[in-house]
Design a binder for these strands. Sequence first.
RNA 1: GCCCUGAUAGCUCAGUUGGAUAGAGCAACGGACUUCUAAUCCGUAGGUCUCAGGUUCGAAUCCUGAUCAGGGCGCCA
Length: 577
Amino acid sequence: MREFATFEEKLSAWTAESMKSVFGLDESEIHLGVSPTNNEQFGDYQCNAAMALSKALKKAPRQIAQEFVEGAVLPDFIDRVEIAGPGFINFFLSNSAVAGYIQSLENDAKLGAEPVGEGKTVVIDYSSPNVAKPMHIGHIRSTVIGNSIDRLYRFLGYNVIADNHLGDWGTQFGLMLVGYRAFVNEAALAEAPVEELERIYVASYNKSKEDETWREKAKTELVKLQQGNEENRALWKKFIELSIEEFDTIYNRLGVKFDLYRGESFYNDRLPKIIEQLEAKELAKESDGALIVDLEEDGMPVCIVRKSDGGYNYATTDLATVESRIEEFSPERIIYVTDERQQLHFKQFFKISEKLGLEANLVHVWFGLMRLPEATFSTREGNVIKLAALLDEAEARALELVKSSSPDMPEAQQKDLAKAIGIGAIKYTDLSQNPQSLVTFTWEKALNMEGEGNSAPYLQYAYARISSVSDKYKAQFPDSDLNRYPLVIEHELERRLAIKLARFPAAVSGAADNYRPNILADYLYDLAQIYSSFYSNVPFLKADEGVRESRIRLCRSIAAVLKQGLDLLGIETRDRI
RNA sequence: GCCCUGAUAGCUCAGUUGGAUAGAGCAACGGACUUCUAAUCCGUAGGUCUCAGGUUCGAAUCCUGAUCAGGGCGCCA
């Protein structure tokens, strides 16, 4: 078993092994391991196998539990075991074993998490805004959730390739090209490039609705672009560069980094070959002039891979993208983070790529759509809330709070702190709930940063309090060496904290395996809650020597887990708040 | 019409993939700052887990049906 294996891992391995030997089982469909209890009175871990084995062994569950407990030799980290209710086997960890484990984690950069991803590559495709349109609040979930998954997989040792699959190709560029030439305001373009590009697009789109020759012109320019016309290509590249530059300022504010910015256009050259393969394998056929893949036997509607005008569409591009990623990176898995509307599309193209023989584990992580209380928003309706405006507002509100609660702090520090709090609050709102729920955007919710209850500032506050205590300890006892004092569990809250700390790896793997950062967010909130209770009910700096050091040491581990955990959510911590 | 989701406290949401008495926060009420940061803590109250069946030792969780809500279903991504 690995060096920093958790109690759950060790105990599960032990119960499974012991069950088999005590009852002479070979393989079992039944889960023989343990799971954490949800109530301390039932111990720390419980094994429920006795009930499930009842039928196979033809014995009463309590009797099975009894025989098991009598027949097996308890591992040394278990203090005692109890049989309860219909046949639950409850395990109580020994305090010294828990203390020893927490102490050993001080030497583990992963804080007990298993680097299961070592040697494996995973591509994560997220954020993916469209060129020439400003990012709005609809982009926040893909960006924030995708980035947290990115961070989680990196932490677990995966070689992560974060790819921003920009919408940089498509019919809208015909309108953009003619629109730009007719309407561009150079001053506005220099000032706020993407906003001006969007204005151009909307103007051109509106004109196209009533002016047929305008539509024709747009189409001609689009064809020229696709055929490689130099002027159009240069302009198109300019749209992309201006857009990326502006996206990057937002990503910097959010602490998001991509390894690649490969738009759809990157895969253009592969599209005809994808079609060839589909035809060669007789997966595609003509229908009303378009080329389609019939997925009826898979219970899905048909999927268009080439339009009747000869153009390709997104399914084809996505297939080419998978093929390219496999060739270049040999990923163990490719993860897409998009909103719920694309579920069918992903199911279809996953199925087609399987039929094409593209070997990769494709995962669609979808999240509920963001809505406004009044209605859905759209660029054309003009009721979008721009992401930059949301971030500005969050930082401004945070700064007000910081100024009122820390008036003596230097201004530069107040501003820095306000950024960490404002951005953290926005991210936490999205990361602390199940991604698959529909979200109605309200300023009040998005900017929840009063620090009351389950919120980012609450966690940041808990962290800052620990930092403050550590610093005071160093100031008061400059010559003390913490490592010379053992970590001892005495108080009930110390025990709860230590047990909670030992469950960090489970929270991380739960969040990563299920693509749900909220599992980690929940965990961190629980930890911070227990710590806050500990802080106000148990003295540490004022405790006797020995107890004091042990508690400071425990605090240090809590700080490490809080900092690392928040970092995995993309939320920053500060030593003072 | 078909498919995918969701429905849990007045409000916003968790619920470790079938376990024991369903949990937090907000709002409400009562208490704690001469103290290691009160952006905190301690306590009270609040529930027919949408409804009806089923599966089994055991269901908020799985199955079937219904109601309501969101999304999708051939040339947008």
